[in-house]
Nucleic acid binder design. Structure first.
Lengths: 189, 189
DNA sequence: CAATGTATACCGACCAGTGAATATACTCAA
DNA sequence: TTGAGTATATTCACTGGTCGGTATACATTG
């Protein structure tokens, strides 16, 4: 239907999101996305120029919500900055207990496509990680001596992404808690 | 030649190794490996039951050398345990400056294939990471109070893998140094 | 009519894996 | 020593299937 352009596009993005999350980007064919969304492949190619275009659009929809979640978890935790950061890890640890948990979509997707340097997914992943780091940095600048803030933000990001990778690989959420403790220790120190 | 079975198999593994490292496992076709090794695909399938079998054999060849490298870097660095661990990160930081550096093959491959739970590459990655962690744990047990050793080993592993992922994604080896500093700080503390 | 959106059917390229035949080297009996 | 037999090693040509992407025609709506 011509009037209802948005729902069609959204249906495609929703279907793509589910499939990409479940099986990875490379493994999901455009045919599969079309079938899952109940539309024809040709219709999909009417709304998206290419599969890469679809991937980019899919990642865009995930960027802000992801950071917002971290910010909410940070804000909702009582205590020092170290406690609040550890709160993020604790919430992630709880999330990771769900059997369908697949870690950080940006990290996963970026590593999956790391061999294609200019790929939109790499750029999206890079931008997302930078956004998280910058937010952490601003948080530390507000509550601590400024010269440590950038380094500290980087180190917390390293622990965060390390935990995403290791928890995913070992299927053991307790690594997320170990990462949270390490982060708290680095911040407190 | 029947007498010289080993070289053929090795030629295939070498070719596969180069291609897998350069382009990723999924992206490399069996045809490509066959062509690179100067043999026919059918010959490849004579020596390896399947592509997965080839992948598993390829990863096996990378397991011990990788850990041995860490151990060498650890042993060759002077100073405290914290210094020695930081030495590993420093060496990795130097390695990461080579333009062809692609991070940890086990981590990259495991994340690439994470959606296939029983895949040999996942099992190999898991086993490799466990081996590194166990080695770190034994190192810490020898030089520190035993109850902290396991947690510390896990946290260093988290920093290590976080750095592998973040350095790869951002193409910025200095994250490896930040990880090393964090590790040293956790150990010293 | 004309623009937008959707569908059927198809393309060439590539994928992992295989069938059948062939070449090479080793074994052992005459 | 030689020649037949056998296991190993390799090749060419192929299969069924999937991939991303498209040519073309049909439908709906203003």
């Amino acid at each position: 239907m011509a009037r209802t352009d948005v729902p069609t596009r959204k249906r495609i993005l929703d279907a793509a999101g589910k499939l990409f999350h479940a099986d990875g980007i490379r493994a999901v064919s455009v045919d599969a996305v079309a079938e899952k969304s109940g539309l024809t492949k040709r219709t999909l190619y009417y709304h998206f120029r290419s599969k890469d275009d679809l991937i980019a659009a899919y990642l865009e929809t995930r960027d802000q919500p992801n950071l917002a979640l971290f910010q909410r978890w940070f804000a909702e935790t009582e205590g020092t900055t170290a406690d609040k950061v550890q709160g993020i890890f604790r919430q992630l640890s709880a999330s990771a207990r769900h059997p369908k948990w697949k870690g950080c979509g940006f990290l996963r997707t970026s590593v999956e496509l790391i061999h294609l340097p200019g790929h939109p997914a790499i750029l999206a992943g890079r931008a997302h990680k930078k956004r998280v780091e910058d937010w952490l940095c601003s948080v530390f600048e507000e509550s601590r001596l400024p010269e440590d803030a950038r380094l500290l933000a980087r180190q917390v990001l390293l622990l965060l992404d390390g935990a995403f990778a290791v928890v995913l690989l070992h299927r053991d959420p307790s690594y997320m808690d170990s990462a949270g403790e390490a982060a708290a220790q680095l911040i407190r120190d």
